[in-house]
Amino acid sequence: MTSRSTDTARLVSIDLARTLAIAMMFTAHVAPSDGPARILLATEFLTAPLFALLVGAAAQLAHDRAPDPGMCWSPPCGRCVSSLSGCCSPSAAPRW
């Protein structure tokens, strides 16, 4: 159920899980009773683990999209370059 066409595309399954978590949180806080057969009581206990799962998924997605550890952002030259090229070294920085 995930659709991903480019690197910046959204994961539909993550968005659906977020929507479910928000709906469950709203139900847990607004429901006047436990509902028939105490079915709404489940929202009290399933919402926090779902949010925890989403936090882990978000952390993994952020980790996967992080730049390569061999890369650095070098303000003196203003571009992301390999640390082997010398632009990231302190000696390559202009003296102001």
Score class of each variant (00 low, 15 high):
21 A>I: 00
49 P>W: 05
86 G>W: 12
58 A>H: 12
20 L>F: 06
17 A>G: 01
23 A>N: 09
46 L>K: 01
91 S>K: 04
75 P>E: 15
87 C>F: 15
8 T>K: 12
72 C>S: 13
1 M>R: 07
11 L>W: 03
6 T>R: 14
12 V>P: 03
4 R>E: 03
92 A>G: 10
52 A>M: 07
48 A>M: 02
72 C>P: 00
10 R>V: 06
85 S>D: 13
37 A>H: 11
50 L>R: 00
83 S>G: 06
59 A>F: 10
12 V>I: 11
33 S>E: 04
16 L>M: 10
86 G>V: 09
64 D>G: 06
73 W>F: 13
72 C>H: 11
44 E>V: 10
23 A>W: 05
9 A>F: 02
93 A>H: 15
40 L>V: 04
88 C>K: 04
82 S>N: 08
44 E>Y: 05
8 T>P: 01
10 R>H: 06
96 W>P: 13
73 W>H: 09
79 R>I: 04
16 L>G: 11
88 C>N: 06
45 F>P: 00
31 A>Y: 01
65 R>P: 00
75 P>A: 15
65 R>Y: 00
56 G>H: 01
55 V>P: 00
89 S>E: 14
21 A>N: 01
73 W>I: 05
18 R>E: 14
38 R>A: 15
50 L>F: 00
84 L>I: 09
28 A>K: 01
51 F>R: 02
53 L>T: 09
43 T>N: 06
53 L>C: 07
78 G>E: 14
13 S>F: 04
37 A>Y: 12
83 S>C: 04
15 D>G: 11
20 L>G: 01
8 T>H: 13
93 A>I: 06
53 L>D: 04
57 A>T: 07
59 A>G: 07
2 T>L: 08
23 A>E: 09
23 A>Q: 07
55 V>H: 10
77 C>L: 05
87 C>W: 15
19 T>S: 06
70 G>H: 13
47 T>I: 01
34 D>Q: 05
54 L>Q: 08
25 M>R: 09
90 P>L: 09
73 W>A: 13
81 V>P: 00
57 A>R: 10
13 S>V: 10
12 V>Q: 13
49 P>F: 04
73 W>K: 05
28 A>E: 01
59 A>H: 08
66 A>Y: 03
57 A>W: 02
72 C>G: 08
13 S>L: 08
74 S>C: 15
81 V>W: 11
18 R>H: 08
